[in-house]
Simulated assay, not measured.
Amino acid sequence: MYSIKTVLAAGAAALFAMPALAGDIMINDAYARASGMNAKAGAAFFEIMNHGAEDDRLISATSDVAKRVELHTHKEDANGVMKMMEVEEGFAVPAGGMHALKRGGDHVMFMGLNQSFVDGETLSVTLVFEKAGEMTVDIPVDLKRNPMAGGMDHSKMDHSKMGHGEANKGDDTSN
């Protein structure tokens, strides 16, 4: 016979695995990670699906887990060095389509963490869309997830020029 704690824990895990919905926008396969218990930065990754007839755009994200939360991407400079940078215009999500936030690409960046990311716990993040508005998502921390296929070679990444001060210098949370 299963204990009530086991049943409740299984139910909670299933709930967090469910996609989040707001209007025509659905968030699927969300997870967050940091490079270690003492990391000063972390990141969240997920798929944004737009089931509506109009294009939308993720324009910002907020969370109390960090002093600063930004939408980020990786770009290669003329010297072949990968740099992480803020995407101030946000991420377009086409009507009837999707936009993936994944390691080595677009992601939500948490800088100046207020707490450690503990495997199995969840982070509350509010995503702001241009048309769908605000959507709060509970994102599970998954420190064990392996990098996706086609992951990025971080040997060329220059984190010293991210332009965000000392809060995240040297942390590599997107691998």
Rank of each mutant, 00 (worst) to 15 (best):
D56Q: 00
H51L: 07
G105S: 15
L143A: 15
A78N: 12
P140Q: 11
N114V: 02
H164M: 13
F46N: 00
M18L: 13
D119V: 08
V118Y: 02
H159A: 09
A34R: 06
T126D: 07
G112K: 02
G90H: 00
L127N: 09
N146M: 10
F117A: 11
E166V: 06
G42H: 08
V137K: 13
V108F: 05
D119W: 05
A167F: 09
M135C: 14
H99V: 06
L123H: 13
V125Q: 08
G151P: 00
V108E: 04
D77V: 06
D56A: 03
D77K: 11
A41V: 02
S60Y: 05
G151H: 15
H99Q: 14
I4A: 15
N38V: 06
E86L: 00
H99F: 08
H154T: 14
G112S: 04
D158C: 04
D24V: 09
G163H: 08
N114M: 04
G105W: 05
A34T: 11
L101R: 09
F110Q: 04
A13G: 11
G52N: 01
K161T: 15
S155P: 03
A92M: 07
T173C: 15
Y31L: 08
G90I: 00
S116H: 03
S63A: 13
A34M: 04
L15M: 04
M162F: 07
A34W: 04
N50D: 07
H164A: 12
H107W: 09
R33N: 00
D29P: 01
D172L: 11
G133N: 11
E54R: 06
D29C: 07
G80S: 12
K144I: 05
I139G: 08
G97Y: 04
V118K: 13
L101Y: 03
V125T: 13
K83S: 07
F91S: 00
M111I: 08
V128W: 01
D153K: 07
V93G: 03
